[in-house]
Amino acid sequence: MTLKIDSLHITVEILALVSEIDEFKGAWRALGTLAPERLSALRRVATIESIGSSTRIEGSKLTDAEVERLLANLDIKSFESRDEQEVAGYAQVMEMIFAHFDAIDLTENHVTQLHRDLLAFSNKDARHRGAYKTLANNVSAFDSDGKEIGVIFETATPFETPKRMQELIEWTRNALNEQSLHPLLVVAIFTVVFLEIHPFQDGNGRLSRVLTTLLLMRSGYAYVPYTSLESVIENSKEGYYLALRQTKKTIRSPKPNWQPWAVYFLRALQQQKRRLERKIERERLVLGTLPELSLQIVEAIKERGCMTIGEIVNLTGANRNTVKKHLATLVEANHLTQHGTGKGTWYSQGM
């Protein structure tokens, strides 16, 4: 089945959203002139937010602080809970995308490899990771006892899935190569059709957001790693699901209604880039006024993710009581967050 894109009506709002996002894309080199360590810190915070939000959208209970602690110990390769397993897999895949997006073309082979890596630590998913679904996985509603009360949305059958994925990937590659449609709209359509197919037994939502990031970066939106789209989606989940449902139920009809999802997707990208604009402005205005030792402490914690008082004293060579005073001021101003008390106290970047 060929995707019927001619039913996508390019409204004034869509044009304005695309224009605003592209203007920021073009200005990113000028905006991104922060010191490398500060850009690195921005990316670390955005990564934590993205991992936390994307896994919570799918039911995880881990907070951003818990995600941050887990990321500091990823090398252990052993995770007790399913939430931790999902976070670990998502973290490693996102880092791979950020580092090697230019070498990861959109192919079925790469999509299945990314799914395999996404679920690499998930014990429950060992049998089906990296392979298209073999059982129906319609999206259903459940009552408080966990009993299914109805199907919200029917996805592609296991039999239909390989052909539909082949068609979707071929269409996306052609549309991006031929520039027959703006890349932001191509990525929007790819994402909603991917979710309508729901090609894997589990992990489709998380993988859709990984692939969205990959396609945006391959289309030149280089600022994406420094601000979390997943966090924007988590904060507007009702609108996310409503837009998905409104478009997904029409995709296989003679006249698909792309509008609800396209507008939601572009608005989310708009919020994503506006958040980054505010963060950069804050970095420039606020950090530029801090005392030298405070600035050194903030940059060190941003780079490492978290530090104890002892680690800060060793790094800076400053007096312990002086460090404590600077930390208290930084916590009060929300530049840092204090965790614990007494000897177990540690500090992370303020949220």
Rank of each mutant, 00 (worst) to 15 (best):
G89W: 13
T63F: 09
D64T: 05
T161I: 15
T112Y: 00
A35R: 15
I48G: 08
N137H: 04
A136T: 13
T134A: 13
M96G: 09
L74Y: 13
K77V: 10
F79S: 01
A91Q: 02
K61T: 09
E86T: 01
N109A: 14
A65N: 04
I104H: 03
A88G: 05
N123W: 11
D117S: 15
R38E: 07
D105I: 05
E58T: 06
G89V: 07
I149K: 09
R116M: 13
R129N: 00
I57G: 05
F121G: 00
G146E: 02
A91I: 00
H110P: 02
E58R: 08
G52F: 04
S54D: 02
H100N: 15
S53F: 07
G52W: 03
H100P: 06
E108M: 05
A99G: 09
H110T: 10
G130Q: 06
A46G: 11
G150W: 15
L74C: 03
I51G: 13
P36N: 07
H128W: 08
A35P: 07
G52T: 06
L39N: 03
N137M: 03
D83N: 06
R38K: 10
A136L: 14
A141M: 08
E80I: 02
T107S: 15
E58F: 12
E84W: 00
S140K: 14
A72N: 09
P36H: 06
E160W: 04
T161D: 09
T134G: 14
L106N: 01
R116H: 15
F159C: 08
R82N: 10
G150Y: 15
D102A: 12
E68P: 12
R38S: 02
S40N: 11
R56P: 10
G146R: 10
D125N: 02
A65S: 05
F101E: 00
G89T: 04
E68R: 15
D105H: 11
L118V: 02
